[in-house]
Nucleic acid binder design. Structure first.
Length: 476
RNA sequence: GGUCCUGUGGCCGAGUGGCUAGGCAGAGCUCUGCAAAAGCUCCUACACCAGUUCGAAUCUGGUCGGGACCUCCA
């Protein structure tokens, strides 16, 4: 695939990617509502869209990437009441917490991280414009968007207005002309945060902020708009309605949506209590594992997290870093190879796969092919050039995936420690046993040394004798 | 009820008309004091039924199963 093909939720097809303005890409991804720590699901989008951005940059585009914070919302207000704190205290706390989590991922930041409350004036003038153009109406200090005025309503989600009205699941609001109309501005009660507006003191509705911030920072038309697939309706549908009604232009050229993370085959949800916070995951396991797991499945398929899957990912990462360590140990001096020839074929497939709607599972398949090829070449002699090319391959692919930049020795130890947690043995015990065994081996008392090794193996610990001494690893 | 997605080997997971990824697990071999790592080899599947086609996991129709959205949600 010579061109970059990207699946567009709007056309439900892969399309050749061509930005509106040649050479530059404007990308907006809906960020979190900041009222709690984020879960791994939120991070799936973040990790995927980072790869998309990296790939676009690799293709030579200059990318303007906006990832927003929704810092005014009913959920934040609810939390502020529960905790008797200011809304701004809650939101700034969780923005900070998010940024702390984000740093652990070691991926580069978006170009902009706008906050909704910094754009209240823009929101007010955006809404005023919609009222002027008769797409919105005022009722009792509320402003509603009139969906039937926007004839293309439903084009993203494939819904039609009649079906939505006949559905029983829409809350009837007396002020609405039509049950499916949605609120652009609503009044704030005493004690709730609010801003003066032509419609009284109030705050923005649920969808307007993304339209406004995208417009303020990126302009009337953007190339890529992304988010989780549950945002398709109503959030993104409503964004289209607002933005296109205001500007009369097509809002986003490509709509890109990532699928969900399930846990033990169930959608993560608060009611089921199976939410995994990103921080918990990264503390219990490792950010590298999170990135690896998320990218090892195509972004439009759902992923299932389970303990077994996590273990498998750890094993795969150990395999990768073991080879990286081998290569790094082989080369002397700098590794500054720009031309990869030994792994040319695999690299081409990698590029084709990224071009094919960011098909990361195929990229991983190539990574393992490259590892096998490298190990094969190293069976007989240690060829420094191949090691350098191997590292160059990983440096290139790793920079797009934002993976594989850890120090092998360090992460291999950490990964094994994670696996060790599930075993009934401590690191200290293992070290003592290894010393005992070394002594026996030096005395050529192999019967004794094998006994020690077999006992450890029985507990799930494998020993391997290397030139650097005996090392241990966890066997599943 | 409406709209849409999906069903691949023991497990995970790509592939969307012929060449049949990759990982984990399992078996055998090479290497090694014995192991491990690594390599080689094997295990080779596409829910079911019909149709289109020289040829289908891949297209079409139907059946059955799983899931999402329609309500805040990544």
């Amino acid at each position: 695939m010579d061109h970059f093909n990207l699946y567009n939720s709007l056309s439900k097809k892969k399309e050749i990617f061509e930005p509106i303005t040649p050479g530059t890409v404007k990308m907006y991804v809906c960020g979190p509502t900041v009222y709690d720590l984020l879960h791994v699901g939120n991070f799936r989008g973040l990790i995927f869209f980072n790869v998309l951005r990296n790939w676009l940059k690799h293709l030579g585009y200059s990318v303007n990437y906006v990832y927003n914070y929704t810092d005014i919302d009913d959920k934040i207000i609810k939390k502020s009441k529960e905790e008797d704190k200011l809304v701004s205290e809650i939101s700034s706390k969780f923005i900070q917490e998010f940024e702390n989590d984000f740093k652990l991922l070691k991926i580069s930041k978006a170009s902009h991280n706008p906050k909704c409350t910094d754009y209240i004036n823009d929101i007010i003038s955006f809404i005023s414009d919609l009222i002027e153009k008769k797409f919105a109406y005022v009722r009792n200090n509320n402003v509603f968007f009139s969906c039937k005025k926007f004839s293309a309503y439903g084009k993203l989600s494939g819904k039609n207005i009649e079906d939505l009205i006949s559905g029983h699941r829409i809350t009837i609001n007396q002020d609405k002309e039509n049950p499916i109309d949605f609120v652009l501005w609503k009044p704030s009660d005493h004690g709730e945060p609010g801003w003066e507006s032509p419609w009284g003191r109030g705050r923005p509705g649920w969808h307007i902020e993304c339209s406004v911030m995208a417009n303020a920072i990126l302009g009337d038309q953007i190339d890529i708009h992304g988010g989780g697939m549950d945002l398709i309706f109503p959030h993104h549908e409503n964004e289209i309605a607002q933005s296109e009604s205001k500007t009369g232009k097509k809002f986003a050229k490509y709509w890109v949506h990532n699928n969900f993370i399930k846990f033990d085959d169930q959608k993560m949800s608060k009611s089921l209590g199976n939410i995994i916070k990103a921080r918990t995951f990264m503390t219990d396991y490792n950010p590298e594992i999170l990135k690896y797991m998320i990218l090892s499945v195509h972004y439009r398929s759902s992923i299932n997290f389970s303990f077994k899957q996590i273990q498998q990912s750890i094993i795969s990462l150990i395999k990768i870093y073991t080879a990286l360590e081998q290569a790094q140990n082989t080369i002397k001096g700098e590794c500054n190879i720009s031309n990869i020839s030994y792994f040319k074929e695999e690299l081409e497939i990698v590029q084709t796969s990224f071009n094919n709607d960011i098909n990361t599972p195929i990229v991983f398949a190539q990574i393992f092919n490259v590892i096998r090829k490298f190990n094969n070449a190293f069976k007989n002699e240690k060829n420094e050039n191949i090691a350098k090319e191997f590292l160059a391959f990983f440096s290139l692919v790793g920079s797009i995936l934002s993976l594989f930049s850890e120090k092998p020795k360090k992460i291999l130890f950490e990964l094994n420690l994670i696996l060790l947690k599930e075993k009934n043995i401590s690191l200290k015990q293992i070290e003592i046993e290894i010393k005992k065994r070394d002594k026996s081996r030096k005395e050529k008392n192999y019967k004794e040394s094998d006994l020690i090794r077999d006992e450890l193996l029985g507990k799930g610990i494998e020993l391997k004798d290397t030139i650097d001494g005996t090392q241990w690893s966890v066997k599943l």
